[in-house]
Design a protein around this nucleic acid. Structure first.
Lengths: 212, 212
DNA sequence: TGTGTTGGCCAACAAGCGTTGACATCACTG
DNA sequence: CAGTGATGTCAACGCTTGTTGGCCAACACA
């Protein structure tokens, strides 16, 4: 968004992919993006209630009313700011007995470079819509991975759920609560410890399973 | 607090341990307890920001100003309402190779019969004081257990931290987010699956350990 | 140059929040 | 019976919130 004030229309006019209702190119895309950036950061650090529209607007350097004009209301802003993509397709093809460690490493990278995940986790604990969104992500992006790794299709939801308890627990203690003994663990240590756990949850047989 | 209305003064006068500034016994204990009960429930279901003093007072059937008189302010109310006791001393004496399953079972019982744990977890994700309190509980009540189970004292914090990621992840997905595939798991299934995980985190050697 | 559209700011609204102090009421003591 | 202190209600304060509508400047196009 900086330096774009020199030729705002030209830049927007160059990207003619999305034809808007008006023939004139949009100058507001920079502002919209600035709002989303600020919203993501505020939601990630403060949660839904304490992330005020006024604070987000101040971070973005514009008036609070602009947020309303572009995103309708606070819920619309959150919906627009947080769209989770676990990028499961980018997982390297590994033998089935290494899927656990691969997943842990993948999620660690994901959480560290995308604050939207922290935002959704923080909001999900106090906001009903946020909790539902987390379940959507789980259903649409986590279940398929478990389906590919787990032998028995009937066990897929339970095994994916077990994996979710471990991964979300890591995210909670490390990136939300920031518990010192958890943040002190290195990436390699976490992969080495949690990898076998996910591996077992997803692929190992288990004697206590209801249908044997 | 129930049935105490018959002889309120006599009951309070009997417990002369804390000498109040006034010689008259306290009739207000029932109200104080009602406030704490309502506060615990609201904090557990709504989190810190959305649990308003007005709503808590209405649940308790009294005026909001009473909350202020008895607990000073909202932070004081939360501090008084949420005092976590993991009751680790009630853990049955089991051989060291069964500490994992025992801990999982213990925590499941704890979370299901005490909503203060849910309250603290919800508040901890959006409130700095709540997050600090969680770390206090971890340090004062979780570390000793790990110290008793883990061979090398130097590894205790890291191993306790690993156990915390799994247990808090279970609490988050099951009691806060209430993800259907996690709530669908039975108590026995969870003990059977998560028990070995905690067992390994607390007691098993590991090749990837820094000082091997 | 004139005109309509877009981007942006300003001021204000109603509602809800935590919090406060004045006033009533009751129980008990002297 | 008068008095005192605890218990509780009522009304309001100051503040912040999400949200709205009006106004102005800049631009695109004729």
């Amino acid at each position: 968004m900086p330096d774009s004030k020199t030729t705002p229309t030209a830049r927007a006019a160059g990207t003619g992919t999305t034809r808007a209702t008006t023939p004139t190119a949009r100058r507001s895309e920079a502002t919209r993006a600035a709002i989303l950036d600020a919203a993501r950061e505020r939601f990630a650090t403060d949660g839904y209630e304490r992330a005020t529209i006024r604070a987000i607007a101040k971070d973005a350097g514009i008036d609070p009313s602009m947020v309303m004009r572009y995103y309708g209301n606070k819920e619309g802003l959150f919906a627009a700011a947080v769209s989770i993509d676990l990028r499961m397709s980018e997982l390297p093809a590994v033998p089935r007995d290494r899927i656990g460690a691969t997943l842990v490493a993948h999620f660690l990278t994901l959480w560290e470079e995308n604050e939207q995940l922290t935002a959704l986790l923080r909001v999900g604990t106090t906001n009903a819509a946020g909790a539902e969104r987390m379940q959507d992500v789980f259903r649409d992006q986590m279940l398929p991975v478990a389906r590919a790794a787990c032998p028995d299709p009937e066990q897929v939801p339970a095994r994916a759920a077990l994996a979710a308890t471990q991964m979300l627990g890591l995210a909670l203690t490390r990136y939300v609560l920031r518990m010192p003994p958890v943040t002190a663990l290195t990436r390699d240590e976490l992969v080495a410890w949690l990898g076998p756990t996910l591996q077992r949850y997803l692929t190992a047989p288990h004697s206590a399973w209801p249908e044997g």
